[in-house]
Each structure stands twice: as C-alpha cells, then as structure tokens.
C-alpha cells in the first residue's frame, strides 16, 4: 500500500529494503523523514498531537502520489504519516520514492512533501509552557507547493 496513516512508529530502512527487493531496475531511492522538534515559533514544545480526517487523508495522499507518478518516471512511492501524540525526536512522516535515476527520485520526493504539507488534512497541536496551541499554516509552505504548478 503506497499510503499509510498510523499511530505506530516506522523503520525507514525496513521500508526501503522492501521497496527495492526484487526490482533490479531501481537505481535510486530518495527518502525524507520529518521529525518533531522541541522548539517552534519561539516556544518550547513538550509534545504535539496530530489530528487528521480519516478517509479524506488517505484519499488526498493517494491523489498526491498519483500526481507524482504522472510527473516523473517512478517505480514506486510510499508515504507513511503518523497521528496521535508525538514527542520531540519522534518521527512524524516518511516519504520514499524509487526510480532508475536520482534526479527523478529527488524531485518526486520533494514534491510529495511539499504537496502533503499543503493538501493532506492533518493538523498539529503543540503543548507548550503556555498551554496547547494549534500550529498555524505557513505561507512558506504554500510557496514551496506553488513551485511545482
């Protein structure tokens, strides 16, 4: 399954090994792992809780993967996004792309992250010393996604 939304952690190495197994045409694997930081917008973050829209999330991620496949020559693509409460240093998201050459793999991986951040229905709420606060969407993320259109 190219898209997974889960509370459990993931192992990027295991996922990448599974994706290259049995396909000698793969020449490049690009991956990205997003990680929880302990500082955001000047406040110390104790933990964060990720909420999502079950059903639409999977649908939106699958659509983003399809879009990447239409733009680049890929063998496979995988997106794993965690939900629930996560702490600093925890992994949040994994994107892996396989292709014959690195150029397409790098670009598709970055595209998937940029689109995911602006189109997949996830929301982060951080716990800071002042209480809980919802993370605001960043215009920089919109600009990053707009580069591809």
């Amino acid at each position: 399954m190219p898209v997974r939304v889960q509370t459990a952690d993931f192992d990027a190495g295991v996922e990448m090994a599974a994706m290259r197994r049995g396909n000698p045409r793969i020449g490049a694997i690009a991956s990205f792992v997003g990680v929880v930081r302990d500082l955001n917008d000047g406040a110390v973050v104790a933990d964060m809780t990720l909420e999502h829209y079950p059903g639409m999330t999977e649908k939106a991620l699958e659509k983003i993967v399809e879009e990447a496949r239409a733009r680049w020559d890929l063998y496979d693509a995988l997106v794993i996004h965690r939900v629930g409460t996560l702490k600093p240093t925890d992994q949040i998201v994994l994107v892996v792309v396989t292709s014959a050459h690195r150029g397409e793999a790098f670009q598709a991986c970055e595209f998937l992250m940029d689109y995911l951040k602006t189109r997949a229905p996830f929301w982060k709420k951080e716990k800071t010393p002042d209480g809980g606060r919802w993370v605001d969407a960043r215009t920089a993320d919109d600009a990053a996604a707009d580069r591809w259109s």
């Binding site: 990720l50 996004h81 995911l116 602006t118 996830f122 969407a137």
Partner: peptide
C-alpha cells in the same frame, strides 16, 4: 461537508 483550518501536517 467538512470545515477545517488550513492543514499543518508533514
């Protein structure tokens, strides 16, 4: 029909 703030995943 769903109403929500701009998304902040990733």
């Amino acid at each position: 029909v769903a109403f929500f703030p701009p998304v902040t995943g990733g």
